[in-house]
């Protein structure tokens, strides 16, 4: 058992944890922050996306113990215009992938703002086109098929 500190949604939390516990399970099962979802537990769906020091990561493939002293933001710690945009553009149906989509979108906007390219970025291009949003968000699956609404919500907030 390891004792570690982590800032979660702005509050320092202390965890007594086995080193093989994932950040996702630590959040859900120990801190009762169940807004972060488990969809595949293998980095293939993005439902577990959280922000670590502002960068989006898949918490299912992160060992909690590796994130000592890091700043973790989950959906419970987010107040951002994109949440209302998701509602207005119906960017979800069942709601299970939504926390991950929202965290991912916030991380993505920051990456784009910092000038980080994507696989579809043309040399010299800086805009956030629909194609850019779709490529950059492709790590977040939505089986209900709310992709159009998600892209619209992000477009609105990015404006």
């Amino acid at each position: 058992m390891v004792t570690l500190r982590m800032r979660v949604n702005g509050t320092t939390r202390s965890l007594d944890i086995e080193p093989w516990v994932s950040l996702l399970d630590a959040l859900r099962e120990q801190l009762d922050l169940t807004g972060t979802k488990k969809g595949c537990d293998q980095g293939a769906c993005g439902a577990c996306t959280v922000l670590a020091d502002g960068e989006r990561i898949n918490s299912c493939l992160a060992l909690a113990v590796q994130y000592e002293d890091r700043d973790i933001t989950t959906i419970e710690g987010i107040t951002h215009p994109i949440q209302q945009a998701f509602i207005e553009h119906d960017g979800f149906q069942c709601g299970y992938c939504t926390s991950g989509q929202i965290c991912s979108a916030i991380g993505m906007l920051a990456e784009h703002g910092a000038g980080m390219p994507s696989a579809v970025t043309e040399p010299g291009a800086t805009g956030l086109s629909e194609a850019e949003i779709r490529e950059r968000m492709s790590g977040n699956l939505c089986r209900c098929g709310a992709y159009n609404g998600i892209v619209d919500a992000i477009k609105e907030v990015a404006r």
Binding site: G43, G46, T49, E55, R56, I57, N58, L61, A62, S104, G107, M108, E111, A114, G115, M116, P117, S118, A119, T121, R136, S138, G139, N140
Partner: peptide
């Protein structure tokens, strides 16, 4: 690495290859 100026300008193949792999979340990790 994919976003680094030196890589994007001198080794587009490397930047593009990385960006073609996995997802943004995984590439961040």
């Amino acid at each position: 690495l994919a976003a680094h100026r030196l890589i994007r300008t001198r080794y587009p193949v490397l930047s593009q290859a990385i960006l073609a792999g996995a997802s943004a979340q995984l590439r961040n990790m």
